[in-house]
């Protein structure tokens, strides 16, 4: 009996399906997070003229708590899927940096309350509100840095093994900073770029907001482009593997679309800009996924998710899909009720 206990070394839906769900939900999570982080940076440092009166700033500040809710909610699913497929490297890296990892949710909670504090203020945008927003932004910078450090470490089993051997207290962070510094900064710059897009989108009838958003969009695009290239070169041997596979085409296409999105933004073609931005965004997330696979396959762990046995659980999977559709319908219906009456 002892040897016939159920196994847990399996995934209960085809890997491609889990990967698609992972990438889709991660993209949505990144978009919401970018709205918030990029939006915060622009609201704080956007040099809006006549800040007291600018309704777009108020609109953003009022929207931040809801976007934080969206970021957290949409972040749960990719965290679940990454733990399903990449449990071993991800848990190992997070345990090695346990305190920093655990602080993520506490810091995020603190930032969340500061966002509410700013949103509930009556004065837009006063010193107190500005301080709240700066604290929230610092919190998000911390969260993003620890995420980059930990997920980067999870791709290097030799690093977390060596680090763990020297310290088991969870008070150590990935020491190979060059392996993730450019990646982290690239993502932050990308967040500001997406934030700039949302400023343009929400302020499309407000010329000043449009100009500020566009300026940030272009500036952040250039910075993230340079950092992205630096990150690519920091990948060293992995870069050669990327060049040989489909990732290079996806990457090239994503960069081209990003350039086009800037062009269309300057032509004030918002719909085309948003499509180009979204597709290039998904492309970047896919490339990030491929880099992880290449790293893990070539590591001491020789981890390949395709080797995980597949044992379907279709009945509950179908229930999940039905509930997902119902949830989307319910949310859509509630928004209709809410905004229908607001109009």
């Amino acid at each position: 009996m002892l040897l016939t206990l159920p196994s847990y070394d399996f995934i209960s839906a085809p890997l491609w399906l889990v990967t698609v769900l992972h990438i889709v939900t991660l993209t949505l999570h990144f978009l919401a997070m970018n709205f918030m982080v990029g939006g915060l940076a622009i609201v704080l440092f956007g040099c809006f003229k006549n800040k007291q009166a600018n309704p777009i700033v108020e609109k953003f500040i009022r929207a931040f708590p809801s976007m934080m809710a969206a970021t957290v909610t949409l972040g749960i699913a990719p965290l679940l899927f990454v733990q399903l497929v990449y449990a071993k490297p991800v848990y190992a890296a997070s345990v090695t940096s346990a305190w920093f990892w655990l602080m993520i949710f506490m810091v995020a909670m603190g930032s969340y309350y500061f966002l509410y504090g700013a949103a509930f203020s009556k004065k837009f945008i006063g010193i107190k509100q500005r301080v709240y927003l700066i604290i929230a932004l610092i919190g998000f910078v911390y969260v993003s840095f620890v995420y980059s450090a930990t997920f980067s470490m999870s791709e290097h089993p030799d690093v977390y093994q060596a680090l763990y051997a020297s310290n088991q207290t969870g008070l150590v962070l990935n020491p190979n900073i060059m392996s993730y510094l450019f990646r982290w900064m690239h993502m932050l710059a990308g967040a500001v770029m997406v934030g700039g897009f949302f400023v343009v989108l929400l302020g499309r009838d407000n010329e000043q907001a449009f100009i500020v958003g566009r300026r940030f969009y272009l500036g952040a695009f250039l910075v993230s482009f340079v950092l992205g290239i630096a990150y690519l070169f920091a990948l060293k041997d992995i870069l050669r593997l990327i060049m040989r596979g489909p990732a290079i085409w996806i990457l090239t296409g994503s960069i081209a679309l990003s350039v086009l999105s800037v062009f269309w933004l300057y032509k004030r073609k918002i719909v085309l800009t948003s499509i180009a931005l979204l597709v290039s965004f998904v492309g970047m997330v896919v490339v990030r996924h491929i880099v992880r696979l290449i790293y893990l396959k070539g590591s001491a762990l020789a981890f390949d998710p395709a080797q995980i046995p597949f044992q379907p659980q279709w009945s509950i999977f179908i229930i999940f899909l039905v509930c997902f559709v119902l949830a989307l319908a319910a949310v859509g219906y509630m928004f209709k009720l809410f905004y229908g009456e607001q109009k």
Partner: peptide, 30 residues
């Protein structure tokens, strides 16, 4: 976060067996 730090082995067992249960719960959460 904490269950993954304190008992990653047990968390792995739960996730592999109940991932779609959790995913279903996530739809309720949204």
């Amino acid at each position: 976060f904490i269950i993954g730090l304190l008992n990653p082995g047990a968390t792995e067992v739960l996730i592999h067996n109940y991932v779609w249960g959790w995913a279903t719960e996530w739809t309720m959460f949204i």
